[in-house]
Every structure is written in structure tokens, then in C-alpha cells.
Design a protein around this nucleic acid. Structure first.
Lengths: 225, 225
DNA sequence: GTGAACAACATTGTTTACAATAATGCACAC
DNA sequence: GTGTGCATTATTGTAAACAATGTTGTTCAC
């Protein structure tokens, strides 16, 4: 639930169930499990070297989070998010993240501005060198940084959960060769708007960016399916 | 052992864990458990006549939902939402519900308009007769109706979960004698705006209403605490 | 060859017992 | 009287066994 998903080594007294949930979540989000892939308890026990109870609790957790779906007496599988829902998720993100962006513009300090500008430069460099993986990572970091700076707690939690749910669409979209070049200026405008401490401009920049993501998702997957 | 006859009746085989989660959630939201009250597994087993595994799974579910918090080796308790978080929740609701209100205004049909206007009349009547309970119920129904009409799925789910989390603030606020009279016109404006099929007006009406809730919450609880 | 009944298997749901941990109360020294 | 250390108790965390359910493959009648 929280971002303490470091690992089990450093942190003592983390229950097995939480550990399994953390690693399973990470595996799903990383794409190690395909959508609709069955999650057989026995396999997970071996994979994570945990008891069945822990695996079971982890599956229950991820089910509530929307990453896994369970059918009674038929087990769990990775939930497949359809296009309509993925688009809804982007819309909700737009509503919440634009709100957080405005708040971030109100509260940002020097350290925050440095962090944002740094991420902006990383993204620019990634586009120049064509490093899609680095861009994707910086993308995620930037969105997270804006929400951290906003000082909110409720909205970021929700957004993080939603981002995990449609990770498949985000990943495939970011693999489009031209996509980073398209979204780079949008991201840079978010950085500038927040650093200018202009809440309305920041909200608009974030909303414009996510509307761009919305259109690109609709375009790309609407045709494919 | 199984008295699901009283509970689900015709419903086909709902797991014990889900049944317990459902009833426990309802109990918390209804205020049968005070915030920070301990939830000892043994007690819940007796209370709901369920196995320990089922109780445990239910507690895990409600923990992810944000209604319960667990401390390792120290058990579960009803999570207490502080004022800051309650206000954040109202802000998030404003962002999401105003979006849904606009969507509802675009999609509303005759049946939906009839439902909204009916609820508006119920609220007006409740204010006239001073029936706070009826007003509260209609209030909840109205917000739910707008989200139903919006045809969305993601945002309503989130809002419902958030509403459950700060139920305590909502209830106490609605007990303020003058509060229904204040919020009635706001609610009626929402109804009118949606029925006028004016998305922007609907979003503004919903946002204005929730900003009013925000202010009232801050005012009332900010002084008390 | 086709379809239905049935049996063997795989997987999950449930219950029970056991271990680990934190809270509590008591004795005892000072 | 007060505080510390120890033993007891209450409560949760973990593991294993058992029961129920769904799935699959096979046999047999037609």
C-alpha cells in the first residue's frame, strides 16, 4: 500500500504477507505476468518461498487494489484492464494530478524546483539519446515528484494505484518511437509552470499532458483492437 | 455453521470472507465501531460466526480499503481519519464528482432526469419536515445517482470508498440543524444543471456544493479540535 | 463417431493446531 | 513508594491437514 516496497532485507518485522504482496505487485507492474495469466497459489508459494497463508493474503490485497481478480473456487489471475477502463483511468488521473500540480506550484521550494528541473533535463537527454527506458523512468519520477511536492496524501495514493492498473497501456505507448518526443515539451511545461509558482498554469499543463496521453492511447489501441 | 440464508439468501455461494468483510464494513460505516476501537479477531469470530481465516481476510480487505489499520503483532483497529485527511478527501471528491456530473449532464436520459428530480423533491420535503435522517439518505442517493448516470466506473468506485472513509465527519456535519437548509439549494442546482444537459454548469454546481462541504467541515471541526 | 455419465486430478476454501510477539501483572530490591 | 525484571497472559502470525469445488480425461451406450 505504501511506498516502503524497498525489500525485505533492510526492514525487519515486515509480515510475509506484505512482502509477498509487494513483490507480486512489482512483478505484475513490471510485466512479468501477462494479463489474464493464472496465479496458482502453489506456484507463488514456490516462487516467493512463502507459506500459503501469506500468498493468499497477498492475493486478497492485490485483488482489492485492482491488479488481480479472483473467481470463487477457480483461483486468481492478473486482471486485464480493457481500453474503456484504461481511458477512464487517464481521465481520473487528469482530474487528480492537475489538482496536485496546482498545489505543488503553491508549495514548491528550492529543493523541489531543483528536483523537477533535474528530471526535465534527464528526460531531454533521454529523448536526445533515444533511451526509451530512461525516459519512461524519468516520466514516472516526474509525476511522482509533482505529487510529493503537492504535500497531499490521498490523491497521490489513488493515482499510484491507478497507474499500476493500466501499466500495460503506458508501457506499450511509451514504446512508440515518436511518443517521447511528443510528450517531452508537455512535461517541460509542467516543470516550468510549477517552478513559476503559477497554480493555474501548472494545472493546465498537467491536464493538457494527460489529455495528450488520453488521445494517444485511444488512437493507438482503438485501432489495434 | 453457515447461516447465509439470513444474509444472501438466493445469492450463489459468496465466500465467508466476503460476507464478513461486507458486514464489518457496514458496521464501521454505520458507526457501530468507534474510531481507533480495537478489532480483536476472536470477538469478530463470535460476532459474525465465521472462521478465523475469514475474519482475517476481511480485515485485510478493509485495511486496503482504508477503513482499518493493522499493526504487526498488535492487531487491527478502526482507522481514525484526521481532519486534514478528511478535507483532502472532500477535495478529491470535488475533482472526481464534478467530472462525473459533467458526464452525467451529457448522457442523462428521461429516466435519469426523473430519478434526480424525485430525489430533489425528497430532499426538499425532508428539509420542510425537519427529517435529518431522510435528508441524509437522499443526499447519499443523489450523489450516487449522478455517478450512475455518468456511466463511469472508475471514479464512482473511488468516490464510494472515500465517502466510507470519512463517514464520521459527514454524519456529524449533517446533524448540524441548519446544514440541510444550507445545502438544499446546492443540491437542487446540481439536479437542474444535469437535467438542463449543461455539463459545465453541472460540474460547477457539484464543485460549489463540495466546496461548501469543505468549508463547513473545516469550520465545524477546526474549532472543535 | 458422438454425447453423457463418471472417475481421477488439480486447485482453492476452511478449520485446526502451533509458534512468535507484545501487553500485563506481580514480586522484589532499594 | 517506586521502579525494574521476570513470568504470565492475551493476541496475532504461520504452518499444516482436511474438505469442497471445479476441471479434465475416459469409458460406454447408442
Amino acid at each position: 500500500m505504501t511506498q516502503e516496497a524497498v525489500d525485505q532485507g533492510t526492514r525487519e518485522s515486515v509480515s510475509d504477507a506484505d512482502r509477498v504482496a509487494s513483490r507480486l505487485r512489482q512483478a505484475i507492474v513490471a510485466g512479468d505476468f501477462a494479463p489474464r495469466q493464472r496465479l496458482v497459489e502453489t506456484d507463488l508459494i514456490e516462487m516467493f518461498d512463502a507459506s500459503r497463508g501469506a500468498v493468499r493474503a497477498a492475493l486478497a490485497t492485490l485483488t482489492v487494489e485492482g491488479l488481480v481478480e479472483k473467481i470463487r473456487n477457480r483461483g486468481a489471475r492478473v486482471r486485464a484492464v480493457d481500453l474503456d477502463e484504461a481511458l477512464e483511468i487517464v481521465e481520473v488521473r487528469a482530474a487528480l494530478e492537475s489538482m496536485c500540480a496546482a498545489r505543488a506550484a503553491e508549495r514548491v521550494d528550492d529543493a523541489g524546483m531543483a528536483r523537477l528541473r533535474d528530471l526535465g533535463e534527464v528526460m531531454r537527454g533521454a529523448v536526445d539519446s533515444g533511451d526509451g527506458e530512461a525516459y519512461s523512468q524519468a516520466n514516472r519520477d516526474l509525476h511522482q515528484a509533482v505529487m510529493d511536492i503537492s504535500g497531499s496524501k490521498v490523491a497521490p495514493d489513488i493515482v499510484q494505484r491507478l497507474r499500476a492498473q493500466n501499466v500495460r497501456y503506458r508501457i506499450q505507448l511509451s514504446m512508440q518511437p515518436h511518443r517521447p518526443a511528443t510528450s517531452l515539451p508537455e512535461h517541460l511545461e509542467i516543470v516550468e509552470a510549477v517552478c513559476a509558482k503559477d497554480p493555474e498554469r501548472a494545472a493546465n499543463a498537467m491536464r493538457a499532458h494527460l489529455e495528450s496521453v488520453f488521445s494517444a492511447t485511444k488512437e493507438y489501441f482503438g485501432n489495434r483492437k
